[in-house]
């Protein structure tokens, strides 16, 4: 395709930092081919090692690990403790009073400013966040689902749609950690009849020891007598592992006591 002269001229240009990306590609292709003359051997070696580097990938990468780490990061930020500053002089109180007065004034002002359509905007935004979480709960990555469930756990209020999504996760998700988080989420809204029902149902079906234990804890904590039969069954079940059995015995004991 290229005569040696052309290639040599191109190399010269390349070494001077004057080639375009296209021309560099052309050189790379030339040196990948057969029949490179001997006196261009170091050029070939150069392009060969570049090629090698370009093909390298991050083999040790794990998406789950990364998102677990980012998740931990977010939690850490939320719980960061800010030390209180000690007031140095009594004057500080003056500033505080002034700040409080200013705050009240701003509050009144803002209160008058906020109109109904602002409230509607906030509501809409909340709805969007919710929709994203619901979608994320069916994502293909376990860490993604875990994160979505996590967000929902932190909500102060839920609606039936969100509860249903959590229940669905508890009943169908393949990943143990995601289900475990869903137990935690539903436990928070135990007063909701559907949450309570789902947790009782899960106790009947769940085979994963970690989750069985979590379920037992939640139900016993809420003094749920309806769980007694299942606790007895688990405690007597030869297939249950010891930790789960112990927990079930303990639960029965506590429920009968209370």
């Amino acid at each position: 395709m290229n005569s040696n002269k052309e290639i040599e001229a191109l190399i010269e240009k390349y070494n001077n930092g004057e080639t375009s990306l296209q021309e560099e590609e052309q050189l790379q292709n030339f040196f990948r081919g057969e029949g490179v003359p001997d006196h261009l051997k170091e050029e070939q070696a150069w392009f060969a090692q570049l090629d090698l580097r370009a093909k390298t990938e991050w083999e040790g990468f794990s998406e789950d690990k990364l998102f677990a780490k980012l998740d931990a990061q977010v939690k850490e930020e939320e719980t960061k403790v800010v030390p209180m500053l000690q007031p140095k002089t009594k004057q500080v109180w003056l500033y505080r009073v002034a700040a409080a007065v200013a705050l009240v004034l701003v509050g009144f002002y803002m209160g008058n400013e906020i109109r109904n359509d602002d409230v509607a905007g906030v509501k809409e935004e909340l709805a969007q966040v919710k929709a994203m979480m619901l979608e994320q709960m069916t994502s293909s990555s376990a860490s993604g689902r875990l994160q979505a469930v996590n967000y929902s756990v932190e909500l102060k209020e839920v609606d039936q749609e969100m509860l249903n999504a959590l229940i669905n996760v508890l009943e169908t998700d393949d990943n143990m950690n995601v289900r475990l988080k869903a137990v935690e989420g539903l436990a928070k809204f135990y007063d909701e009849p559907s949450a309570k029902k789902a947790l009782l149902k899960a106790l009947k079906k769940e085979k994963e020891p970690m989750i069985q234990i979590a379920l037992i804890d939640v139900l016993v904590e809420n003094n749920e007598k309806a769980a007694l039969d299942d606790l007895e069954r688990i405690a007597e079940d030869g297939n249950s592992i010891k930790g789960v059995k112990d927990q079930a015995y303990m639960g029965m004991f506590k429920l009968k006591e209370m």
């Binding site: 560099e24 150069w46 060969a48 570049l50």
Partner: peptide, 26 residues
């Protein structure tokens, strides 16, 4: 020859390795 060139690359100054990576590798 490639092995030698790998070594040569790794001994280039930091800034040069960076620029070559951005341009010639990426």
């Amino acid at each position: 020859s490639v092995k030698t060139m790998v070594r040569v690359f790794e001994q280039l100054p930091d800034q040069q390795r960076l620029l070559i990576t951005l341009r010639d590798v990426e």
